[in-house]
Amino acid sequence: MSYAFNWGLPPAAASFAPEIDSGIALIHWAMLIIFVLWGAFFTYLLIRYRHRADVGVSLDDTTHSLKSLVPDVIVMIFEIGLIIFYAIPVWAHIKMKFPGGNEDPVELNVIAQQFAWNVQYPGPDGKFGRRKPELINFYNPIGLDLTDPAAQDDVVLANEIHLPAGAKALIHLSTLDVIHSFGVPEFRLKQDAVPGMEIPVWVKPTQAGTYELACAQLCGFAHSLMTGVVVVQSPDQYQAWLKSRAPAKPQQAAAPGANF
């Protein structure tokens, strides 16, 4: 497979991915330039000041020289620029401002477990059914409470997420057991799922396609097998898919760890 150069990054498929990519590219170009300049100077010093019998040492003013702080100033200015104009605003955009209200995002729960991704869509009523840990069993991996009316039309999937392209999706990320991490390289998205917490994550996929969702935080012996797919479809296809999955009764989702 061949990617365009782009520092080896996989294709970008989310709205904020280009922002992250441009940062990675900018920093790597800067690093490369710094390293080359610096390496050239270093090599020059090694050759110019190698030991020769007839050439002595030339002492500079070592005690009061602040010369070695000069690169610091340059680095500092670069970093301050990065922080103010890049890191803080983009960070807020990705991790702190969540779609809601009039944006009408696609909402879904992603509930990680050893070693599978459970996905819960609220169904046509737009309400998530209640979940209770007591109810979790082989056939009900997320402990959906079927006595709850809101649970009746919920769609529960394992290791498969469907999202419409061009629309924002709000994912409520949680986990049943240990820390997992929701990572989709093409979305440039990564967020740990922490036991006892429900963490919001948003993404706006831009390219239709199938992407790999892989756990990015060590979660046990089968960590590397904890993968799923994210299917990004055109909005029409997505709606069609959603309709086809809307159950009269809740789905029987795949058993835990069924993917290995």
Binding site: K132, P133, G196, M197, E198, I199, P200
Partner: peptide, 10 residues
């Protein structure tokens, strides 16, 4: 705001 108290709700 992001904490879940599963035991309490139950």
């Amino acid at each position: 705001g992001r904490m879940t108290h599963t035991n309490v709700t139950a």
